[in-house]
Every structure is written in C-alpha cells, then in structure tokens.
C-alpha cells in the first residue's frame, strides 16, 4: 500500500477543523481502493458504494479519534472492514445477489465479447471468494488486491502477523478446493 503518511495526517487535521475540501481530497485519494475492497467483500456494487460512502461519513465524525497507532490507510480499511462485516451481518439473508445482476460499469470502448469474458471471470472468482469466511476474505483481499504487507494487514484487522498468514493460508486452501472440485481453473481464466 502506498504510504502518504504526512499528507494523510494533514488531511485528517483539515477534516477535524471542518474543512470539506480535506474530506474531498481524502475521498479522491482512497475511494478507488476502498471501493475495490468493499466490492470484493460484499460482491454487490450498490452495497459497496454505500459502504464506501459510509466510511467517509464515519471518518468525518471520527477524525478526532484517530490516534496514529496505525497508518491512515490502515485506519480507513479497518473502518471499511467493520462496515462490511456489519453490512453482511445485517443483510445475511439477502446477500445472495446474482452476480449477473451486479452492475459493474463497462469500461468505455470495451467490446461485448470481452465484457462477457470479464463478467464470467468475475463471476467465477466472486463465487469462489464468497465461500471464504469474512476474516479469510479480508486478509486475502488486502494481500492479493491491495498489495498490503502482512504487518499492515495485521494493523488494519487488529490481529497478529501470524494470524494474517494463517487466514491467507486457509483462504488459499479453500479456493484451491473450490476450483478443483467445481469449475476448472481455466474456466476462470
């Protein structure tokens, strides 16, 4: 995860002072990563957007609570992870969202064939990810898709580095079993 420590602290300070621009800049900086994270955690674009917005609303109200023990990025992802867990708990029964219905905006100029292939890949991977526990998925997503070091993942999730490794290890074992039992790996590729 790219570190922008002092800049981030400055933005938080501006938010504490009630500067809307500071929150706007923080959004521009972190919304893409947080949206990617919440999208993979929830497998539902609309929910992911809502939760991502929720993160920034919480940041505004909790900026004064940030104690600097973890980096600002870790703090943001921790808020996002908690928000995703809350959302999943609340919507447990309604979480079965047909992935075909997930409205991922199509990239400009993207052809129909590549859109279908992309959707199939997405469907296959999301299906596999959905079999992981929240804890395993959080650790794996942060490591695989956000390139976050184990130590930072540990800070974010409030666990030890050893626990991070264990969760990722178990997640990978589950995914291997999923792909070997059901769809072939190449179907996803």
């Amino acid at each position: 995860m790219e570190s922008k420590g002092s800049d981030d602290l400055e933005l938080l300070e501006r938010i504490r002072r009630g500067d809307t621009g500071g929150a706007g800049e923080l959004f521009e900086r972190y919304a893409p990563a947080l949206l990617r994270f919440t999208d993979r955690m929830l497998s539902d674009r609309a929910s992911a957007e809502e939760v991502t917005q929720e993160v920034f609303v919480k940041v505004i109200s909790r900026a004064h609570q940030y104690d600097g023990r973890a980096g600002v990025a870790s703090w943001l992802f921790a808020i996002a992870a908690n928000a995703c867990r809350d959302r999943r708990r609340r919507d447990r029964r309604a979480m079965v969202v047909p992935l075909e219905a997930v409205a991922e905006p199509r990239a400009r100029g993207e052809g129909i064939e590549s859109t279908i292939a992309s959707r199939q890949r997405r469907q296959a991977v999301r299906q596999a990810l959905s079999e992981l526990s929240d804890e395993q998925r959080e650790a794996l997503v942060l490591a695989r898709y956000h390139g976050m070091p184990y130590a930072e993942i540990a800070d974010t999730l409030g666990i030890s580095v050893g626990a991070v490794k264990t969760r990722i290890f178990r997640a990978v074992e589950t995914l291997k079993a999923h792909f070997s039992e059901g769809e072939s790996w190449t179907a996803a590729t």
Binding site: A23, L35, F56, I60, L140, A188
Partner: peptide, 22 residues
C-alpha cells in the same frame, strides 16, 4: 486467477454523489 477479477471503479456519478454526501 484471482488477479483476473476486474476492479470496481469509481464512476463520475458515484464520485459526485459521495462528495455531495460529504
């Protein structure tokens, strides 16, 4: 295989709505 999952992107509408919410 995991890496082939496309990333969600921030659309202009989402960005606009979010900044308004902020």
């Amino acid at each position: 295989v995991l890496g082939t999952d496309p990333d969600a992107t921030v659309t202009p509408e989402f960005r606009e709505r979010s900044l308004e919410l902020i």
